[in-house]
Amino acid sequence: MQVYQMYKDMLYNVSLRIIINQQDAQDMVHDAFIKAFQNITKLENDLNLGPWLKRIVVNCSLDFLRKKKKLSWLQESYELQQDEEVLTEELDNTSLKFEDVKKAIDALKDKYRIIIVLYLIEDYSHKEIAQQLGLKESTVRNQYVRGKRLLKQQLQNKITV
């Protein structure tokens, strides 16, 4: 239970960013701990416990969304042309508030939010995200660029309002 107390909030935040719903995120944390305890022999180095648990909770959360058919966009995703990143003007850093950014990320559709969260916050590479979601790496990169564009657009709207 010591491990549970130590890591539960960290895992809860990871899951909450992916599935948004608090109750479901709590269930995912419990599922992740159960899986971890059942597979504890697979952990080769105790120092990796935190990242290992994080990976498990990410897997559980994505499986949960798959079961709820909230990842149906994966079937819609397709190979796009390499979408070069055309940046609009940089956001004014002084007017950028963390709370606004967090809200804007949460407001993104699953297909953009999950990729943005895994890449920018959980430090997954595009390749790892592609493997996790069963997509091509180029599709992940494209969805990431789109998500970032939408995020900027939302924040620009907020700043200009």
Partner: peptide, 22 residues
């Protein structure tokens, strides 16, 4: 925006799980 999010990464972990769930 990318750097802003990466720089504030730890601030995203601001929610706590209810103690009842233990």
């Amino acid at each position: 925006l990318e750097h802003f999010i990466k720089d504030h990464k730890t601030a995203f972990d601001d929610s706590k799980m209810s103690e009842d769930t233990t």
